[in-house]
């Protein structure tokens, strides 16, 4: 059901899910990219979404912070439903961090400025406070010494870690990762994955679109397989990898694990 009425607080008594997606349908022009998606994400849950390219997995997580607009169904993030209301969208976006495949750091700002921009202008923090927080997080992703440099001067792996720190500076409740390692060289993939594992251990709620099955096995509470815009199967990693229920999942796993 589409609900374009005013936002309503959805209150569930016991352990409310932080993200609740109901019967989500989305089209690009006439192309049906997401079909009847139902998904609930609980607090501190780590979910890995995988699937062949064009399966709609990126589109799904981009719908969660409204980088894409859905046509049918509802998405409720932390009790607030996503509608056309710009103010609400911005609120949800500031609570949901996102990391992109191509980093998308702001090239005209230093690493530190990249991190402090939103805390200062959206969270209305003082510059000193924001600087302190940013340095703290840059230390966590192990690049505090690069704070004064510009993104163009860093390696891909370093840039992606800055991007993670930038998202964390908003102190989000959920982090979305859209193929964070696909644009990186192998040795850099490792450093980024390590950062993500540490983040997972700290209790962050995470939705990760990735093909890194090692990461899924180690970190995920749940692995979701998508194809043709549908959720084909979801399970805990052990059962997902060892006992796939659908032959489509089996085929995908054999392709991705045997090369």
């Amino acid at each position: 059901m589409t609900q374009t009425t005013k936002a309503k607080k959805v209150n569930l008594d016991t352990n409310p899910p932080i993200i609740k997606i109901d019967k989500l349908n989305k089209w690009f022009g006439k192309f049906h990219v997401l079909k009847d998606i139902d998904l609930q994400v609980n607090k501190t849950e780590k979910i890995v979404i995988c699937g062949p390219s064009g399966s709609g997995k990126s589109t799904l997580i981009r719908c969660i912070n409204r980088l894409e607009v859905h046509q049918e169904g509802s998405i409720v993030v932390d009790g607030t439903e996503l509608t056309d209301d710009v103010k609400q969208i911005n609120e949800i976006r500031s609570d949901v961090g996102m990391v992109f495949q191509h980093f998308n750091l702001f090239p005209h700002l230093t690493v530190l400025e990249n991190c402090t921009l939103a805390p200062i202008w959206v969270r209305k923090k003082s510059k000193m406070e924001a600087d302190e927080l940013a340095m703290d997080l840059l230390t966590k992703v192990r690049i505090p010494d690069q704070a004064k440099k510009y993104p163009g001067q860093l390696s891909g792996g370093q840039q992606q870690r800055v991007a993670i720190a930038r998202a964390l500076c908003m102190q989000p409740r959920v982090m979305l990762f859209d193929e964070p390692t696909s644009a990186l060289d192998p040795e850099m993939i490792k450093e980024v994955l390590e950062t993500m594992i540490e983040l997972a251990e700290s209790g962050m709620t995470m939705l990760v679109v990735t093909h890194e099955m090692g990461f899924a096995n180690k970190v995920a509470d749940r692995v979701i397989f998508m194809d043709e815009g549908q959720i084909v199967e979801q399970n805990d990693p052990k059962n997902f990898f060892n006992n796939p229920k659908s032959d489509r999942t089996k085929l995908f796993l054999s392709q991705i694990l045997n090369h």
């Binding site: 980088l67 710009v86 961090g97 702001f106 202008w121 959206v122």
Partner: peptide
Amino acid sequence: GQIEAAKSIGLNRSQMINM
């Protein structure tokens, strides 16, 4: 990607355009 990044950290329209 720049515009999406700006949106994803919660900047509003005029902040995104100006900064």
